[in-house]
């Protein structure tokens, strides 16, 4: 069966003719829309590497059917920086050496962006650790991750709302 879905990814509109309802949001991004920044670590919601924002909320894209995302606004790691200017979470991750191999990093960063939006952690490292626990880092960069999220959270609290880019449109067949 073929399904037409329309979704905004990183501010750009995609009209996708989906020839298979089995396609997950993660595989849509990686295999059909040339957005491989989002990573597959377990494909079962057990590691967090595939975390993206859907309508501003962090979710595991491996457990979301693409078909079900019709009309959604999605932000992936590729859509976070404004041109050359890194998102504060991205910059903080580099500064605090919050990754090693880098494979879980897109998910960690998207999760951190979601966490800061949720506003439930404040400046409490223990709350950050708990609320970042859905993102496994096998290299063990947790100390840097916690520091980076705290720092980015502090900056977000100090600064104004982040702005979003101008949407343009495009068509994709997938």
């Amino acid at each position: 069966m073929s399904l037409s879905i329309s979704l905004a990814i990183n501010g750009r509109q995609h009209d996708v003719a989906l020839n298979d309802p089995r396609v997950t949001l993660l595989d849509l991004l990686r295999e059909r829309l040339d957005l491989p920044g989002t990573k597959k670590g377990c494909d079962r919601g057990q590691c967090g590497a595939c975390t993206v924002l859907v309508d501003g909320r962090r979710i595991n894209s491996c457990l979301a059917l693409a078909a079900s995302m019709d009309g959604a606004e999605i932000t992936t790691i590729e859509g976070l920086a404004e041109g050359d200017e890194l998102h504060p979470v991205q910059a903080a991750f580099i500064e605090h050496d919050a990754f090693q191999c880098g494979y879980c990093t897109p998910g960690q960063i998207m999760s951190a962006v979601g966490l800061i939006k949720e506003g439930m952690a404040g400046d409490d490292p223990e709350r950050v650790r708990e609320l970042m626990s859905g993102n496994i880092c096998r290299c063990g960069a947790y100390q840097g991750i916690t520091e980076a999220v705290l720092e980015a959270g502090r900056k977000a609290a100090e600064n104004a709302q982040p702005q979003t880019g101008n949407p343009d449109t495009g068509k994709d067949a997938a």
Binding site: R30, I77, Q90, P106, I109
Partner: peptide, 13 residues
């Protein structure tokens, strides 16, 4: 670092 935090670092898959 920049490649890894922007999703631009290319892993095999």
């Amino acid at each position: 670092g920049r490649l890894k935090v922007t999703g631009a670092a290319t892993y095999a898959a």
